[in-house]
Design a protein around this nucleic acid. Structure first.
Lengths: 147, 147
DNA sequence: TTAAATGCAAATCGTTTGCATCTGT
DNA sequence: ACAGATGCAAACGATTTGCATTTAA
């Protein structure tokens, strides 16, 4: 039930970008990540495979992927323009329980599109990018809500 | 056509928080700001009136106001829980063209509420906080779109 | 072969903290 | 009078940069 998207590696090759071992590794990690990654987590994960990899490389690669529009500015996943479910965490804390809405859930998409269209029509604001963040408790959350 | 909200100063007094000149100044700036402020901008604006005011005071005051729920964690305006229209800017750049949706526009509210409700019903995700960000071109934008 | 990518170390940026002094109540 | 707020300077963590070395094409 996965929706199709060309692999980041393919995209890089297509753009004629040099493929180093480090880039291959980082791209693979980002691609397979279940949750959003920050630079520190990405570094940590990468070092499990390549202990020699440097912070600078992490940041430079993130920058590269952003510049080519392959990952989202905010969340390091290739979610550009997609809607997100994000738990409310304190800014510094490790993101936990961050996941995205399945794009094949047409109900949300339709409602969301309608919301955007209505806003455009009523205000003259031409919507180009939209991001919806929802904080709260999911099915699998413990008793206490984070807030 | 402004909707009512108690002034931040009143809220502070009501909570028995000590009013210093610095706090009065900062609160006034935040209250009158047309756009979202970041710490650097707030400092800059404050120093135009009180050149001696220190960064630390800015950060401590922001922290204080956040702790009491008087400003939004993200944008330094007292917009807690309200829907926002925010232009797409690079993270480091000065926020420009940031404004909020008028809460009296029932059309949006109704659609937005319906979206949230639908998500709750379909996924079991209990929505507690929601933020909608839209990037694009408003009526008053120049010819060239930012993104 | 060579332009570009890497690792390393130092620099920089935004934010926070400890402490002596000042101020609101 | 005194708890709490401020300014100052140093500390901190995250990100960036310069440069010598390595690597993909």
């Amino acid at each position: 039930m996965l929706y199709h998207r060309r692999s980041l590696l393919d995209e890089l090759t297509a753009k004629g970008i040099r493929l180093t071992n480090q880039r291959r590794l980082l791209v693979e990690i980002i691609q397979n990540a279940e949750v959003h990654l920050d630079a520190a987590t990405l570094l940590e994960l990468a070092q499990q495979t390549d202990p020699g990899i440097d912070r600078a490389t992490i940041y430079r690669t993130i920058e590269l992927l952003k510049k080519h529009g392959l990952i989202d500015e905010l969340d390091l996943m290739h979610l550009k323009g997609e809607t997100l479910l994000r738990s409310q965490d304190s800014p510094r804390s490790r993101p936990s329980g961050v996941f995205r809405m399945r794009p094949d859930r047409r109900i949300f998409q339709r409602l969301f599109e309608r919301l955007k269209a209505e806003i455009s029509a009523q205000t003259g604001f031409e919507v180009k990018v939209a991001r919806l963040e929802l904080g709260g408790r999911c099915r699998y959350c413990g008793a206490a809500a984070k807030q």
